[in-house]
Structures are given as structure tokens and as C-alpha cells.
Amino acid sequence: MDLSAINPILLVASIMVSATPILLAALGEMVVEKSGVLNLGVEGMMITGAVVGFVVAVASGLPVLGFVAGALAAAVLSLSFGVLTQYLLSNQVATGLGLTMVGLGLSALIGKPYEGVKAPTLPKLDLGPLSDLPVVGRMLFSHDVMVYLSLLLVVAVWAFLKFTRAGLILRAVGESHDSAHALGYKVVRVRMAAIFFGGACAGLGGAYLSLVRVPQWTEGLTAGAGWIALAIVVFASWRAGRVLVGAYLFGGITVLQLNLQAAGAQVPVALLSMSPYLITILVLVLISARGVHGAPASLGRSFHASH
């Protein structure tokens, strides 16, 4: 094995790129779960965002438009989950799985003519003197705008949940929907808004996969990224800062195992490619063994105002 083949500067830079899609999706899902809704359809929303973003970016030649369209498409799709679980009171686990299946089918259908097409990708942001810094510049300050936007979003979500009245209401709805209802808050409306936001974030993450990370369209492109985002929310104990840590850790593992494969490490390739999933399981076990979950108390429960 030749470890010197791994360039630390490129490694850090690619970790940031590979962590961004799951960071976006996990952040959205965290807000959804904070409102007491368990949406297992992240994978379906992500891949819908990926395909719609790709198609729009190819058609218009504008990657930014692709991101907007991807986020919108996934958010609209997530509303179907919202209507089913919030108004028709269906089981959230089953509906989330259904959403994933619909998303996977829909995306394969839409994306079929676009396989092998090249998309316009996001230009790297020029941060002037910062980008010109010797090592740090290439590591941290020469990415596209979405990387920094995702980091900003972490701060925004954290501040929203911690300092704003609306964030407090959202958390109240998630902890005890009956009490929130008794106080006069519109439980269903708050949750629909959260679901919409979660869908938009997942769509952004998906579009980032198909437009920057990969960047092309293949069927089943997300390959479990949505599920990993769900695991990261648990890992993060529903805190924005830790979602960031989790996403970057996971992005780091993914990139590192690819680098080790390329460097010809004396480990079976199969073991390396399954390592991100195994490590996710390991982390889940460590988190749950500690016993403190911090899960919103109403997570996954349907709200019906009649009782």
C-alpha cells in the first residue's frame, strides 16, 4: 500500500463535497423529526430532487435553477407524505417507505432519457485572498456555493430552534402535540411546514449529488444516502451541530475508503465498500447503548384532535 498516494489537501476537500448532500438531507429531516414526524422517505425525496435538478440544469444550462427545481420537486413530493400522515392519519413508517418507493420509481422514469448526459456543474466560488491561501485555501475555501450554504443552514437551523418563537412552537409540537394543541397552536400546520422544509432540504442534497458530487444521472444514484441521513439524525441526538459532525464523519469515511481502495490497501475491497454502513451501525449502537436519546417525545405518533 502506498499511503503517500493520498493527498491530504484533496482528501479534506473531497470530504467536504461528499458530506454536503447528507448534511443537507439530515438537517431537513432533523427539523421534521423535531416537529414529531418521522419521515422515512428521505431517500425517495433525495433521488427525486437529484433527477429533477439534473433534468432542469441540463435543459436550462443553469445549475442554480437545477437546485431550485430539485428542492421544489422534493418538497412537493413530501407534501403527499404530509397529507397522508397529517390529514388522513396514516402510519408514518409505512407512508415513509411508500414515499421512498414512489420517489425511486418516479426518478427512474424521469431520468431514463438523461443517462450518460453531462450536466453543467456549479463553478467553484472564488473567495479572493482566502482561496489563495497556501494549504487551507485549497482545502476549505475553494468549493462551490452549496458547500457554504449548507454550513450556513446548520447555523440557521440551530438559531431557529434555539432562539426564535417559531422554533419553540415547533419543538413544543414535537414534544407534546396535545399540549401544543391545547395552547392553540396549529399542530398539523406546523408539521406540514416542517415536512415541506425537510423535503426541500432533501431535494437540495439530492441535486447536489447529481450535479456536483457524481455529476451525472444513473438509476438509484443516491444508493442509500437518504437512509444514512436518517441514521445521522439519530447519531446527532437531534442537534444541529452534531448533525454537522455526523455528516462530516460519514463523508470522511466514504472518501477515505475510496482513497484506500485507490491506494491499493491490503484490505478486501468488499470490506472497504461496506465500511460506511458498518460504521453507521456501530455508531447507532454506541449512541443507543448510552441510553440518552433526546428524541422528541411525540416522534412518529399521529395527531388527532378529537381526544
Binding site: 397522508l84 396514516s90 414512489v102 427512474a108 422514469l109 438509476e219
Partner: peptide, 20 residues
Amino acid sequence: PGASIQLFQGMLLFFLLATD
């Protein structure tokens, strides 16, 4: 397209949950 049948099956689950 072959994928449309997957969508078809997903829709079936959705409608079932909705009518439930």
C-alpha cells in the same frame, strides 16, 4: 419504461394508506 411499474407499485401502497 420498466421503472414505471415500480412507480405503479409505490402508488398502490400510497393509495392504500390514504383510503385506510
